[in-house]
Design a protein around this nucleic acid. Structure first.
Length: 345
DNA sequence: CTATATGATTATTA
DNA sequence: TAATAATCATATAG
């Protein structure tokens, strides 16, 4: 009873001022009579552990078998189980959280939306085309225009699925392997189902992080593909001369309020054989660019003013209109009300 | 090849 | 929700 405190201090005398150190005690042995035998045992075991890597596999197997057949083995195993039972409580509950990872969900959603991870549309390309046409609501050339896009997309899809399957398979393989290993080991050391479960969880997490990389890169590829094929900016064509003529005529003849109504837009679109949204784009661009640099458009403005004047006179058969087109902006250009900065160089 | 023109998209605003 | 402003990506002129 009074042995314990003495063990701590007796051999050192002056107690090291702070760090007793476990190794120190073990080396000292403290001269205890009962420690001698155990020390010997521990030394033996350490020796065995140190040399275990030098042993051949057969030797190790033989030793393992011998241990397994040892008559004390069941009893020792029970003891191990008991100890483990007590200590396992501490590690349980340490890692239970499994957040559904927003990043992964985003990727999944996107892949699903792009039809990469969705159901196989198979050879039913006709059905897909029909669906696309129906969705487009009249874009007959839509499917033709995007056929190579879809081809590339399905290529990506195939790669994605192949890789995914490969990872899945590898994961299963590895899991099986590890479980076999654990089962094998559970003959010599106690392994709870919980631990196995945990191990499987760890493996799955690792593999799913790999899958996440795959999904990430697939998403990137799809995005690049999209921007390459579906971005209308990449295949921009100028409107033909006549169309711009018509649009400019309207713009400069409504310079004080160049905001065509929906009806007018439809009319213009029909005349120029472009869509209403293209008309809207054109007017949006025209307004902002005109406002930004009126000087640059002066000439154009004069030209179209003259032109409309000419057609007007043509219609009215009256030519002597004192229409001076040199300063067309002097009138109430109400849409210019807010002049930010006339960048005149 | 460089600079400008131009149609389309995106973000912001009222 | 449409207009605006900024920006992109190409077309075209020089």
């Amino acid at each position: 009873m009074d042995d314990q405190p003495r063990l701590m201090h007796s051999s050192h005398g002056v107690g090291m001022a702070g760090h007793p150190g476990l190794a120190q005690h073990m080396q000292d042995g403290t001269g205890g009579a009962d420690g001698e035998g155990r020390k010997q045992d521990i030394g033996d075991i350490l020796q065995q552990i140190m040399t275990i890597t030098d042993q051949s596999l057969d030797e190790a197997q033989a030793r393992k078998h011998a241990l397994n057949c040892h008559r004390m083995k069941p009893a020792l195993f029970n003891v191990l189980c008991e100890i483990k039972e007590k200590t396992v409580l501490s590690i349980r509950g340490a890692q239970e959280e499994e957040p559904p990872d927003a990043q992964l969900m985003r990727l999944d959603n996107m892949l699903l939306a792009e039809g990469v991870s969705g159901p196989e549309k198979g050879g039913g390309s006709a059905a897909a085309a029909a669906a696309a046409a129906a969705a487009g609501g009249g874009g007959s050339d839509n499917s033709v225009e995007h056929s190579d896009y879809r081809a590339k997309l399905s290529q990506i899809r195939q790669i994605y699925h192949t890789e995914l399957e490969k990872y899945e398979q590898a994961c299963n393989e590895f899991t099986t392997h590890v479980m076999n290993l654990l089962r094998e080991q559970s003959r010599t050391r106690p392994i709870s189902p919980k631990e196995i479960e945990r191990m499987v969880g760890i493996i799955h997490r690792k593999f799913s992080s790999i899958q996440m990389q795959l999904k990430q890169s697939t998403c990137e590829a799809v995005m690049i593909l999209r921007s390459r094929f579906l971005d209308a900016r990449r295949k921009r064509r100028n409107f033909n001369k006549q169309a711009t003529e018509i649009l400019n005529e309207y713009f400069y003849s409504h310079l004080s309020n160049p905001y065509p109504s929906e009806e007018a837009k439809e009319e213009l679109g029909k005349k120029c054989s472009i869509t209403v949204s293209q008309v809207s784009n054109w007017f949006g661009n025209k307004r902002i660019r005109y406002k930004k640099n009126i000087g640059k458009f002066q000439e154009e403005a004069n030209m179209y003013a003259a032109k409309t004047a000419a057609t007007a006179t043509n219609v009215s058969t009256h030519g002597s209109q004192a229409n001076s087109p040199s300063t067309p902006n002097s009138a109430g250009d109400s849409f210019l009300c807010d002049q930010p900065d006339a960048k005149s160089t």
